[in-house]
């Protein structure tokens, strides 16, 4: 049997993007929730809970972009110009929130400024990622191996909606993460936020899911034909189970269950998007095979991915293990 390298790579890129979304999702979420910290020390704790791991999380975004360039160069060459403004704004936002981790400890007078940068940067980056997702779902015009649409095509009510959905969803991830990492009053505070955000996230997932088939009839058909059909049948069940776990976990003051449930919620939604997209990588024009690099590139890069990705996962897990448990308010990182 012929090995379908493009298909394998589509799986790896999807995995990288999902990993990015859930990992940076919770740390961007902490940024989105930052102003809700009631005191200086609450905010210090919130930031310290992610200080040792955030740049590892963001590296998955680099892998998403760099990986696309490596194995689906045509998709990379089409998507980036199509999303020129949202991508540029996201990058600038990430600059602001990334430097805030170090800067806010280096100044007293400007601490507020970097707090704002952390909040604003995190929120804008999340919003632009949501917009990018919405714009991609809507479809991108391609002609002669290049983007052929206009400069504001990405800006529609639907993409704004997905933008809001991602901000709210990331905030949910952040709230459940903080519920896991903090103790006492702050934790209770975050738990209350998590409940509200969970309701809002579910509502937004519902609205986006209902609207998606109206954008392109193909999405609708994919959900009611195999292999999508199998997923359409299982999805409500998984969703119900996850939702139940999330709310009971919050009710019973569990530390870890709500966070894992929120991650699952993202996982399920992500697979749902995958079902809508497949076999396209840039709907409605390019399939994964049309956008794929020549086989020699796919093979060469695959050797590295097969060896290195498991290693990365192992030492990333180790790093999380080192910094596991509740944050000690008396022993911060700075």
């Amino acid at each position: 049997m012929e090995i379908d390298y493009a298909f394998i790579w589509a799986g790896i890129i999807a995995f990288a993007v999902l990993t990015y979304v859930v990992l940076d999702g919770f740390d961007l979420g902490v940024g989105i929730l930052f102003p809700s910290g009631r005191s200086e020390s609450d905010r210090d704790l919130m930031m310290n809970s992610i200080a040792p791991i955030w740049d590892g999380n963001e590296t998955w975004l680099v892998l998403g972009g760099g990986g696309l360039f490596a194995v689906f160069p045509l998709a990379y060459a089409v998507i980036m110009p199509a999303l020129y403004m949202p991508i540029t704004l996201m990058l600038l936002a990430l600059v602001f929130r990334g430097v805030a981790f170090e800067y806010r400890w280096r100044t007293q007078r400007w601490k507020r400024v970097w707090d704002m940068a952390f909040f604003g940067g995190s929120t804008l980056a999340a919003f632009m990622q949501g917009i990018a997702l919405g714009a991609l779902v809507q479809g991108i015009e391609v002609e002669n191996r290049a983007y052929a649409g206009g400069w504001w095509d990405w800006f529609t009510p639907f993409s704004v909606l997905t933008g809001i959905a991602v901000v709210v969803g990331y905030a949910l991830l952040g709230a459940t993460w903080l519920n896991m990492k903090l103790e006492g009053e702050v934790q209770a505070h975050m738990r209350r936020y998590a409940r509200v955000l969970a309701i809002a996230t579910l509502a937004l997932i519902g609205v986006v899911s209902l609207l998606t088939p109206f954008l392109d009839i193909v999405y609708f058909q994919r959900w009611f034909a195999l292999p999508g059909l199998a997923f359409s049948l299982v999805m409500p069940l998984l969703l119900a189970l996850t939702t139940w776990k999330l709310f009971t976990g919050l009710r019973d003051h569990h530390d870890i269950t709500p966070f894992l449930s929120a991650l699952s919620l993202f996982g399920i939604s992500f697979v749902g998007i995958g079902v809508s997209f497949y076999p396209h990588i840039v709907p409605p024009e390019l399939t994964i095979w049309q956008a794929a690099a020549p086989e020699s590139s796919l093979k060469f890069a695959l050797v590295g991915a097969v060896i290195l990705v498991p290693l990365i996962l192992a030492y990333t897990a180790y790093s999380y293990w080192v910094f596991r448990g509740k944050i000690d308010p008396d022993a911060g990182y700075h």
């Binding site: 990986g67 194995v71 990365i312």
Partner: peptide
């Protein structure tokens, strides 16, 4: 691209 992917990985 693959060289950059190796750099990242």
């Amino acid at each position: 691209g693959p060289l950059m992917a190796y750099e990242i990985l």
